[in-house]
Amino acid sequence: MNPGVGTVYRWELTKLRYQKRTYLGLGAAAIVPIIFVVAIHFRHNQRGGDFAFASYLTRSGLAVPLVIILFGAVWMFPLITALVAGDIFASEDHNGTLKTIFTRSLERGQIFAGKALAAATYAIAAILLDGTVAVIAGSMQSGFNSLQSLSGTIVSAPKALELVYVSLLVYLIPIGTVVCIGLLLSSITRNSAAAVVGTLMISLLFQLIGILPGLGGTVPYLLSTQFNAWQGLLRTPIDWAPIVRAAWVCAMYGIPSLAAAYLVFLRRDVAGG
């Protein structure tokens, strides 16, 4: 069998299975909803719902994943995503292994593609894992009940479950952009910590721009805003506008980042290691 992008992809996933950061990221994605639900449980029992979304959260467990992705957009999911995306090229520099894999039978472009796909796969796995744990834990705490949409109408539980997963998919659009930024910084800085922190800083910077006075007009085009696009799904009728905008705004940030990462990786000198 001749090697190709698929070979790199499979081996990158294998390598991820050997690395602690993979478990750190996926572990955080799985544990946060559990901690969240436990917190709701005690809050609810003590003083009743007195915090934001409390009524949502106590009426239906299906609200839990949505509230988590709402707050997770600030730094948690960008960080979990950057943990692997920011490391995937930099770790080769760290181990000095680029010279080892570049002198086999795969083109640099194939190695790039396999690695980018693996980083994306990990991000998708983290989001879906988080969502699934949140649905299960939330339902155990607050019940698998119908959900009130943002327009006030009631959505049946099975329909709401479907909306939760479609929301997670829409959420993956900006996450994909974070992956691209992570890949770019990983490729440029050749340093894992710098790339992870840098990716997080960029995503925080977008939020900062959004709240600066006088820059309000930029809000619809900021990356941070696209993390809220899924809310369009919870309106009746569904508001597709923010989702469509998320698609092209994210592409606008993501594709140039990915292209730059690719060119840097393709042309770079492997002088170390």
Partner: peptide
């Protein structure tokens, strides 16, 4: 250089697959 977190054989398996 090799991936330090994998065994020697696993490293060779990776490189063999890349070949």
């Amino acid at each position: 250089t090799f991936y330090p977190y994998m065994s020697g054989r696993r490293n060779l398996e990776l490189l063999g697959a890349f070949d």
